[in-house]
Design a binder for these strands. Structure first.
Lengths: 216, 216
DNA sequence: TGTACATCAGTGAACGCGCGTTCACTGATGTAC
DNA sequence: TGTACATCAGTGAACGCGCGTTCACTGATGTAC
């Protein structure tokens, strides 16, 4: 079967998209080439017509997931009032929905510890996307963009992704909920026990829209 | 060869100790049974006289690493003046030495993302140790110990481990240093540009003592 | 326009390899007599 | 005390399995004439 010119590009994109979900769910080494191809409705033999190696797909899938996440949060923030932008992102990020859907969530908590052990080539690709995500977060802080805003963004992202990883380890009990809540309070600069009732309502509304419904 | 009663326990402990280093370096799936046994000066055939399965060793090695880390930081804090305890821990944790020595460092940034995908049994073992580490961190915050201190400790730990993971991805360039610095400032509640010269000196002194010289 | 050929995305069997696990065996030393 | 036996931590070959990768092949469709 010979296909139109766009066909191969579409297939390639479909493999990357499906793989980005499964790799976030199972880890960078947690799923094989045959299963990834099956996810895209193909057999494993055709894999090397699209990618030089398994690692090349991991890099593409990771970059795809990072771009989609960065875009999504930038868009989410753009829809909110200026003084609500940061909290909108943080509440969606540190929601039970995001915790329980790693496959459609941020690639940073899912994959960065593994990426840190990969080849320099893979690490550099990741670091570039991470840099972009830091830039997006820096835009959400009030005041002039600059080194100070970038540093605030770095710390916020570290707290958010770290909290999500720990919350995933803890499962879905009280410890996990406390971790999410502590992370939200820390990033948004609130005292630990501030306005608990109001917070919960806001989290539910934003998180459902931002994470559970999204498909990366 | 038949050995004394303590001999098997000593061998078992040696395997766990060596494995805890290698697993933090290479990831929970990054090194095989044969290499782990070789590290302990043995051949792979004897492995199952000590452990029911590879997963059982991973759990033991993880628990060992967590206990050692918690002990070490509690001790490090105990040697500092009360108002310096938190910063002593944070500066050691977010140092280039700790970033560049995952094998002898904290197990949380090295392994928790992978543990989050393991069996409930493994996850619960990890969560229990994480809870202890949170308790240790909570002791370092001024004021009465309680839910508020625990939440502060959770956020601090999330920021610290998240920052370390991102700094490891970034390598050892400017982005990596900025991440570490941003993490320190965030956990210690400093403005982004506070007293840079004094900070750097303090970091070097504490970090060398705390991390580079330690052998877990 | 009709026909023969070329293309190439995708198929599925096969490869070599490393892994976790099993097992028959070894041999130094504790123990029973 | 001396000797024969029992023990069992550790050895190393072997197992089955799944993985990443390769390769000869297929067959629908674009293209040249």
């Amino acid at each position: 079967m010979r296909y139109s010119k766009e066909h191969k590009l579409e297939t390639h994109a479909r493999i990357v998209k499906k793989a980005s979900v499964r790799l976030r769910e199972k880890g960078a080494h947690g799923i094989g080439v045959a299963d990834l191809m099956k996810d895209a409705g193909l057999t494993h033999g055709g894999f090397y017509a699209h990618f030089d190696s398994r690692e090349a797909l991991v890099i593409e899938a990771f970059a795809y997931a990072m771009d989609r996440s960065t875009d999504r949060w930038r868009q989410l923030a753009g829809q909110a009032a200026p003084d609500q932008r940061l909290s909108t992102i943080v509440d969606a990020y540190l929601s039970p929905q995001h915790r329980d859907n790693p496959g459609h969530g941020c690639a940073v908590p899912a994959l960065s510890a593994e990426i840190a052990r990969e080849s320099p080539k893979t690490r550099k690709a990741f670091a570039g996307k991470l840099d972009q995500m830091i830039g997006m977060m820096a835009e959400q802080f009030p005041g002039a963009p600059g080194k100070a805003a970038r540093k605030q963004a770095m710390a916020a992202l570290a707290t958010m992704m770290g909290t999500l990883v720990l919350a995933r380890v803890a499962g879905n009990g009280e410890l996990s909920e406390d971790l999410l809540s502590a992370g939200r309070d820390a990033v948004l600069g609130r005292a630990a026990a501030a306005k608990p009732a109001v917070r919960k309502a806001a989290v539910k509304k934003v998180a459902g829209k931002a994470v559970a419904g999204a498909k990366n």
